[in-house]
Design a protein around this nucleic acid. Structure first.
Lengths: 109, 109
DNA sequence: ATTTATTATCGTAATATTGCGATATATAAA
DNA sequence: TTTATATATCGCAATATTACGATAATAAAT
């Protein structure tokens, strides 16, 4: 056991859950906020800003990249990361269409 | 290692991440959608609707309850679960205030 | 009081995630 | 070419999550 049974859920449910999952770590939330405030940033800035090892930051960046919410551009010997505005807005829209489902008056509580 | 260093992040970052985490499983997304469509539901309905064991559903319900997004009312020998509309809207608002941070023009990519 | 039905909790095995040091890779500078 | 700097990947240990059977707890029905 211990293996999520993705096949019994809809694509939408699986997709939403995996978007939430990428955001479900404070380091990744912090990375996104830092990039937004700085407009962009190089990986090493994050290592200094957050108190995590370089390998750990790199792994978190990889997960964020996996859903396209950030992208990296090689810049000299560094990599400059920035938000992909379109993906950012798409994810927000997906979350909102989930939350905008009408919550009707309850039968019980 | 393998233990998230919550203490190095802000309360907001930790809170947001833990809200995302509760929603980061397709079964929990499915449970919320089912409750919304049915207006409310008893635990056993979910066991039949989704293909998961009763213990598993109960555990997922517990996690959803932990952030207050659903609440349960004892109804005879069953428990009727429903969405807490206020919490639902608050979470949506929190997500939106995160996503509404202005994503400025990038320096690099 | 006993039985039945429903939900919660416990214990456990399988799997996934997290964080880090070590190391590999890549580019710039000397 | 060699060296220095920045990032990515590998391997591993610690921790967390997931799913489920077994069992406990609760409340209705008999």
């Amino acid at each position: 056991m211990g293996l999520t049974k993705s096949e019994i859920f809809t694509d939408e449910q699986n997709r939403l859950a995996s978007l939430f999952k990428v955001l479900a770590h404070p380091a990744r939330v912090a990375i996104l906020q830092y990039i937004i405030n700085q407009k962009a940033c190089i990986c090493n800035d994050l290592v200094e800003e957050l108190g995590l090892a370089q390998a750990t930051i790199s792994q978190h960046l990889k997960e964020l990249k996996s859903i396209g919410i950030i992208q990296g551009t090689i810049e000299g010997k560094s990599v400059c990361y920035c938000i992909d505005k379109n993906v950012w807005k798409k994810i927000q829209a997906d979350f909102n269409s989930f939350f905008d489902q009408e919550v009707k008056v309850n039968k019980c509580c």
